[in-house]
Nucleic acid binder design. Structure first.
Lengths: 275, 275
DNA sequence: TCAACACTTTGCCCTAAGGGGAGAGTCAAG
DNA sequence: CTTGACTCTCCCCTTAGGGCAAAGTGTTGA
């Protein structure tokens, strides 16, 4: 018959924790004085408490331990819970390994560049979306503005002309992955909420989903968009990915003849883990 | 000017999280309508939000991210926080690796033995304690009871005779680590709360602390204490430890001529990581 | 036998990062 | 004008207890 603090000292578990285990049914005192509600424990309860502690160290929650200590639990169930916990821990290990590598890469960058990059590369999935699209060719990058505007004009005009009120923001898709600085084919697409007829210049289709794109958000004039590409391409290589699809530019904020410093563009490159 | 759910969709961060980031000062909307309290965001805030997300994936708490995003933080401080996080992750990795191994060992045991062991081995430190002690020799294990009782009688009698009211429970220390089944020297010690004089048979000293003991709690007659030793020794070997000191038996619950099924004994073996 | 002190009880609030929901106010379209 | 979709704030919930407060209990010294 030990008082709670004696038992706590014996087991090196705080009285608070012992009360919690009592309330959760993991370890009931051998006796509770009905008048004072004092809890009384016995040294014979140490094996059970130690079992609780061991399972806790193995990463089980108190609720799970409640199941594990239940008298009528089969060995198969125990095995199942252990295997489940095993895969949980393995997953956390993998996550932490990747996290660790990314932290270390940031430290390296910091040492080399003496400043933090302006861009954060993030990975995300892109959902399939219905779009209206047209094709064009950019003779050279220095003068792509008017051509792109004209392409999007065509798509927007067509979409509004077919009764649409609200459309998504413009997206450029560069289907050519080889580097070329002249006569670049480009597809100008605009997400639309529902189907409209196709024309000879504008076609409607469902842009397939992309499992993973690496992307950066560029804030400012298109003139400095090259930095975004540099960051993105370097990141893809360094982190063990490879390009697996057509690059897109999403014009999240853009106004014709507006202030270029207010433009916001997201550059997306579909990627997959390099073999 | 995007409403919260538009911005949420754009960034794939829930409105709930955006409100939290607002409240924590991580990402304030560009405008809050003073009458309706509606939050309005701009696509220009995506880079900052992405930075938040990246740091979150690296394992930083929102509070830490608040520091990291603070304008007037030096590169040295950022480096410091990264290094701190790095060591945190490394520690968690090590913990999880050891956890994983222990879970796998339990699974193996389960496969082999078709039942769960009765003992849980736990590691703990033992604090230094003041004790009264005497030495004896056990001719053979089969008949150790009376001799041990006599040894403890001497110590208890001496302690009470010197005015002590409360003493700890008896501990046997087997200083001999070599296996011997006859004439085993044993030290019977009893923790005492403060100094008393030494005699020729009973001496008082401070039992040094032990950094780590592996221990099991045995519940029942001493006759089956061998099982506890088996479990413990097997565990020590399997888990990559080696014995680094004298084994102890702590008689947590014992009553002369009492019911042996109520005895509780803790067997402790000092261990250290094997090289 | 009483006062003092150590101990125990329950209950409440706190943690991190939101999720879920209620009740009330707001916005845009028909 | 109404309706439905959004948004706001506020409250409770999650883990495994820690900290504290008020009230009750046990032991000990005088």
């Amino acid at each position: 018959m030990l008082k709670i603090s004696d038992f706590a000292q014996l087991s090196r578990v705080s009285p608070k924790a012992l009360r919690l285990y009592d309330r959760m049914g993991l370890l009931k005192p051998i006796k509770v004085d009905s008048q004072s509600n004092y809890r009384y424990y016995s040294a014979t309860q140490l094996p059970r408490l130690n079992r609780i502690l061991v399972f806790k160290e193995l990463g089980f929650s108190l609720e799970e331990i409640g199941c594990l200590l239940n008298e009528n639990i089969s060995l198969a169930e125990i095995r199942g819970m252990l295997r489940l916990k095993q895969s949980e821990i393995q997953q956390r290990l993998l996550d932490d390994q990747s996290r660790l590598i990314r932290v270390e890469m940031r430290l390296q960058e910091l040492e080399q560049e003496k400043s933090m990059s302006n861009y954060e590369v993030i990975l995300k999935p892109i959902k399939s979306q219905l779009v209206a699209a047209t094709l064009g060719i950019i003779p050279n990058f220095d003068d792509c503005g008017p051509i792109l505007e004209s392409l999007f004009d065509q798509v927007y005009t067509y979409a509004f002309g077919n009764g649409l009120k609200e459309v998504g923001c413009g997206i450029n898709i560069y289907h050519e992955t080889t580097l070329r600085d002249k006569d670049i084919p480009v597809e100008a697409v605009v997400p639309i909420p529902h189907k409209i007829p196709t024309s000879d210049r504008i076609w409607i289709y469902k842009l397939p989903e992309v499992e993973t794109v690496a992307c950066v958000v560029h804030h400012g004039s298109f003139a400095s968009l090259g930095n975004a590409y540099c960051t993105l391409l370097e990141w893809v290589g360094k982190h063990g990915y490879q390009i697996s699809g057509s690059t897109r530019e999403v014009y999240l904020q853009y106004e014709r003849n507006g202030d270029p410093s207010q433009y916001v563009t997201e550059v997306q490159i579909p990627v997959e883990k390099a073999a």
